[in-house]
């Protein structure tokens, strides 16, 4: 197991190719659920969990069902099917075993079903690993999925923290609410652009 490769994937997923701020995926919950820190964190944890689970399931489906029979073109359809069922399953389990968690996370779970970030990570996992130049292995796909979720959480929590402060700040009337949130999102994305310098591609190619 190549630990360095996994660390590269983690840093790449959280900072360099952050799902929201660099790949521009999952923008709907990013702006919708980032008004309060607590709910942002809840949504982030839910997404991370679903992304990790979805990475495992879709990688298996791709490797053992689709790829051997040359059905890669069905990826999108099959992955949507898998993710939707998975979220349903998680929803039922949480409702049964932790009603309070269900009450606080339950509203986000149906949102995640159609979250493009989850489908995005599943599709990225079927491609080639930019750090090793080969296809993602099972463990790499899992790490990539989890860390993409962590990256999503980081973006969401950062945004929520800023928006909570923005609520108290004197903002020009026409910019109040969503407009200032968009501006903020753009500025954070610009800041995250700096992490491109962390790119490991040069010495990944060498080693």
């Amino acid at each position: 197991m190549n630990l360095a490769g996994l660390i590269q994937i983690s840093i790449g997923a959280v900072l360099i190719n952050n799902f929201v701020l660099a790949r521009m995926l999952g923008l709907c919950p990013f702006l919708g659920v980032s008004k309060k820190l607590s709910s942002a964190l809840g949504m982030g944890i839910a997404v991370t969990f679903v992304m990790a689970m979805a990475s495992l399931c879709t990688w298996c489906a791709d490797a053992f069902v689709l790829a051997p029979y040359g059905l890669e073109y069905l990826q999108t359809v099959v992955f949507i099917l898998i993710i939707a069922s998975l979220v349903q399953l998680v929803e039922m389990t949480v409702q049964k075993f932790s009603p309070l968690l269900y009450e606080s996370l339950g509203i986000y779970l149906p949102l995640i079903t159609t979250n493009c970030a989850v489908l995005g990570v599943a599709l990225i996992n079927t491609g080639t690993n930019p750090y090793s130049g080969r296809a993602f292995t099972f463990v790499e796909a899992f790490v990539n999925g989890t860390m993409s979720g962590v990256g999503f959480t980081v973006a969401l929590v950062l945004m929520a923290g800023i928006r909570e402060k923005l609520d108290l700040a004197p903002i020009a009337k026409p910019l109040e609410g969503l407009p200032i949130a968009f501006l903020t999102a753009g500025l954070i994305a610009l800041a995250f652009l700096g992490f491109v310098g962390l790119g490991f591609s040069s010495f990944a190619a060498g080693g």
């Binding site: 029979y69 359809v77 399953l89």
Partner: peptide, 14 residues
């Protein structure tokens, strides 16, 4: 057939 089988499988599990 593959897609149908998967749909059926997930439906049954759910």
């Amino acid at each position: 057939f593959t897609l149908g089988a998967m749909g059926l499988f997930f439906g049954a599990v759910l």
